[in-house]
């Protein structure tokens, strides 16, 4: 219910709230977010989480799709380097995603809208402060309108 209200408010352009899509690995960051919830930590509701097996599973296309669909910010978070549940998945992410971020500007997306972070399963507090920080930043950057403008007719779906 709240979600629909937010969406409506966003479409009206009033009382705007950023929409942040987060891709979290199942073993560290997702568990960290879970811990934040279990510890009753407050953090902004602007973030929506997609659970993936590993940060190495993040296809750059997911990030582009999110922006295309009107996300104002995208976050990828995985296990700390060295702690990957799958030995080396976050190393793939660590090489691939910063390179991808360099290309975002070329595509008309402010690279500051794409965040990469490492949050372990024990870092519930880090997760909530991370979300608070990037939400704050998303407010400062304002709505991401370049893509939705181009694809406006599609947005009814």
């Amino acid at each position: 219910m709240t979600e629909k209200k937010t969406t409506a408010a966003q479409r009206d352009g009033t009382d705007w709230q950023p929409r942040i899509v987060a891709f979290l690995c199942n073993w560290c960051s997702y568990a960290g977010a879970d811990l934040a919830g279990m510890s009753r930590n407050d953090y902004p509701a602007a973030i929506k989480i997609v659970r993936l097996p590993c940060s190495g599973r993040v296809d750059p296309m997911f990030v582009l799709k999110s922006f295309e669909r009107g996300a104002d910010m995208v976050l990828v978070s995985g296990c700390h380097p060295g702690d990957c549940h799958y030995s080396s998945g976050n190393y793939h992410a660590r090489r691939k995603l910063p390179a991808f971020r360099e290309l975002l500007g070329f595509m008309g997306i402010d690279p500051r809208r794409f965040k990469i972070s490492w949050v372990s399963a024990a870092e519930g507090n880090k997760w909530s402060s991370l979300v608070a920080d990037i939400t704050e930043e998303a407010y400062a950057l304002g709505p991401f309108q370049e893509f939705p403008k181009c694809t406006a007719p599609e947005k009814t779906g």
Binding site: V21, P53, C54, G56, R57, D59, K65, R69, H92
Partner: peptide, 29 residues
């Protein structure tokens, strides 16, 4: 099932069950 192969595959010929591209794009949508 970490999915590293899936992201690397240029022809998108590998799918991790439960985390297929279609499923994830739907989720993003």
């Amino acid at each position: 099932g970490c999915g590293a192969c899936m992201v690397t595959c240029r022809s998108k010929s590998i799918e991790v069950q439960g985390y297929t591209d279609n499923q994830l794009f739907s989720e993003i949508n």
